[in-house]
Amino acid sequence: MEILMAFTIGILFMSATYLMLSKSLLRIIIGTGLLSHGAHLLLLTMAGLKRGAPPLLGEEAASYADPLPQALILTAIVISFGVTSFFLVLAYRAYQELGTDNMDRLRGTEGND
């Protein structure tokens, strides 16, 4: 399963990168969203998959899945939510002010920086 996941993560990262290199601001944001999904899965895969019960002591299992990556990922999910929404509003405001979401037209013009 880990091997399969490794390739899935690769695909996620690939699509994310391709989206981030595009011109449209919205696509870049979608790309960052994909990127964080990939990163979360990578963290989880690194710790090994499906080893033991969920990390709840109530399960009274012999072994538990590694709780630390899960805690890290939980933090990361919430943070990436905050960042994504910030990005979104940034894009939305940039469109309102400048009338475009094309990155090529959003670049700082000379003498204006």
């Binding site: 880990e2 091997i3 996941m5 490794a6 390739f7 993560i9 690769g10 695909i11 996620l12 990262f13 690939m14 699509s15 990168t17 391709y18 290199l21 595009s22 011109k23 449209s24 696509r27 990939g38 990578l42 895969t45 690194m46 090994g48």
Partner: peptide
């Protein structure tokens, strides 16, 4: 549609490949 760019594609594939390798090695 998103305009196609070969450099973008190559970079994305490289990034994806590197991450696959990392995930495999880390495991």
């Amino acid at each position: 549609r998103m305009s196609f760019k070969l450099t973008n594609l190559l970079i994305s594939i490289a990034v994806g490949a590197v991450f696959t390798l990392i995930a495999l090695s880390a495991h």
